[in-house]
Design a protein around this nucleic acid. Structure first.
Lengths: 116, 116
DNA sequence: CGGGTATATACGAAAGCAGATATATTAAGC
DNA sequence: GCTTAATATATCTGCTTTCGTATATACCCG
């Protein structure tokens, strides 16, 4: 789970994954699509491979990379306990909770007296 | 999306999130539960807050942190296109797929390089 | 106001990670 | 065997992130 998230957290690797979502790709195709150096592509593919997110098959000198479904299923399973949580909360309070810095608002309701 | 994944990729922060899944926690409670220094906890909470994963409310000197549902919904939505993919693949076997695509001549010398 | 508590921020050091260049591996075709 | 093509690995450099320690802020109570 950790390695899955860590692998996907990198923007370039996320792009690779989204490329592979459509169909398997050779390294050279990825290199061209993302316009980046070949060693970098190989390196990112290695991280993805070690995280179990992709697998490769050899075709002569080329390697065809494709997504493996398991990590995505794991992510989906991991999300399960949170699903209940968000569906329950989205009905009420939606607009209220949106600000990241809710401290000011919270102070008012916590102290219940308001002005400073 | 990226910031959500990046925030969750850190093992400590993932633990914090799983703590908060059960119920909101004060900083001190998290500190004690994870047995780590207070400044570190605050710092991780800041990353989570800036990623929109948690929000806090003030209660006297204490701050109560709770999960925000939105990022989890986004993750769930992001997974959507992959769901079809994995359910389609889990029916048949992975080895089966290789023979299906035998026109690639990959099968002859194919060596699956899965995760390690 | 002063002291204690809870949390946040600043800052320096160490570690981890992405990018670039150079080199190694493996297979193909002549 | 030699050359070229496709991909992988090694190494260095710089950047980002994390940990630790010290300090600042905000709040409560007497």
């Amino acid at each position: 789970m950790r390695s899955t998230l860590a692998a996907l957290a990198e923007p370039t690797r996320l792009q690779v994954v989204e490329l592979l979502r459509d169909r398997p790709h050779y390294v050279g195709e990825i290199e061209e699509a993302l316009r980046m150096g070949q060693p970098q592509v190989s390196k990112h593919l290695r991280v993805l491979r070690e995280a179990g997110i992709v697998s490769s098959t050899v075709d002569a000198q080329r390697r065809l990379y494709r997504l493996r479904p398991e990590p995505f299923r794991e992510l989906d399973d991991w999300l399960e306990p949170y699903r209940e949580f968000w569906s329950e909360r989205l009905d009420r309070l939606e607009a209220h909770l949106d600000s990241t810095e809710s401290d000011l608002r919270a102070r008012a309701s916590a102290v219940a007296e308001g002005p400073e």
